[in-house]
């Protein structure tokens, strides 16, 4: 028996070793680095919690955090709503629905860098597509990326445009809802809205929950397109951009690592809150809830 146990470990050892060497060890190391001043070329110098103390006095850090939180707070619900709406639209039986599904999913297939470059052009003040269309309506050009007030709306526009990429999980969820639920509701005289509110939404809630968690994590860690697109008045300097600048431009690896830990804690708290709230609104078919029993 004992031999069997070792054999088991042996079988999973490639993964276990990989996990320790490439995940646990860097994590422990990163915890230490966060407590040091480290230019990466020389030995780290232990400074205790100085990095964390300095961060909360750093205006640029607070600004970057604020920009990111603001973006997450708007973009996550916006993204969920748009993706779900698109999924519901392409879940209907209309002519050419496969074309629409493909077209709407395209943003998820194209490389992020090329999308960013494309948007940089679309949002350009003088030669961009949006201002060209606006000029036809007689609206003067807007500095989408050059006027601080318009930077955040520009990023939200990109989120809406990319919402088709998030459509897939909702579409799968929608097709999983048994038809008889709707039929039963129709017999009871439910209208379209009530069917959506009392059947579609609850049945989709696990998918929404999944997308909420992924959305929070993704929004807080936003980097790729912001790195390329930028934005005036530091409105496009998201948390990860500032972290990157500290690590690779200013050679403040300890400071950057401390930032990473703070981000980790923020994401952890947000995710925990989401999980805590989930029992109130996420419905799993396999679970039998006390309330459901009472209703019977």
């Amino acid at each position: 028996m004992r031999f069997k146990k070792y054999e088991g470990y042996l079988f999973i050892s490639p993964w276990i070793i990989g996990f320790f060497v490439f995940t646990i060890a860097p994590l422990v190391f990163a915890f230490y680095v966060g407590l040091t001043e480290w230019d990466t070329f020389n030995k780290p110098k232990f400074v205790g919690l100085d990095n964390y103390a300095a961060l909360f006095k750093d205006e640029d850090f607070i600004k970057a955090l604020w920009v990111t939180v603001k973006f997450a707070a708007i973009s996550v619900p916006l993204g969920i709503a748009t993706s779900m709406l698109i999924a519901i639209l392409v879940n209907t039986k209309v002519k050419g629905v496969y074309f629409f599904r493909t077209a709407l999913y395209l943003p998820a297939v194209v490389s992020g860098v090329s999308i960013s470059l494309l948007w940089k052009w679309i949002l350009d003040k003088d030669f961009g597509l949006i201002n060209l269309l606006l000029s036809k309506l007689g609206i003067p050009p807007i500095g989408w990326l050059t006027d601080p007030a318009f930077v955040m709306p520009s990023y939200l526009m990109i989120v809406i445009w990319g919402a088709g990429g998030g459509m897939l999980t909702y579409l799968a969820g929608l097709q999983d809802i048994p038809k008889h639920l709707y039929e039963a509701a129709e017999i009871d005289g439910a209208n379209g809205f009530r069917k959506f509110r009392h059947i579609t939404l609850p049945m989709l809630s696990p998918v929404i929950f999944y997308n909420l968690i992924m959305g929070i994590v993704g929004a807080m860690r936003k980097f790729g397109d912001a790195y390329i697109i930028g934005g005036a008045g530091n409105e496009g300097r998201f948390y990860m951009i500032y972290l990157y600048e500290n690590a690779f431009k200013y050679f403040k690896m300890g400071y950057a690592t401390a930032m990473a830990w703070i981000l980790f804690v923020i994401i952890l708290i947000l995710t925990l809150l989401a999980f805590k709230s989930s029992s109130a609104w996420v419905y799993y078919e396999s679970e039998v809830k006390p309330r459901a029993r009472k209703g019977r």
Partner: peptide
């Protein structure tokens, strides 16, 4: 399992060298 054991030894060396 022999092959795996060999791999373990290999990756252990890699890990050790790394540290």
């Amino acid at each position: 399992s022999l092959v795996l054991a060999f791999m373990v030894v290999l990756s252990a060396c890699g890990g050790g060298g790394n540290n």
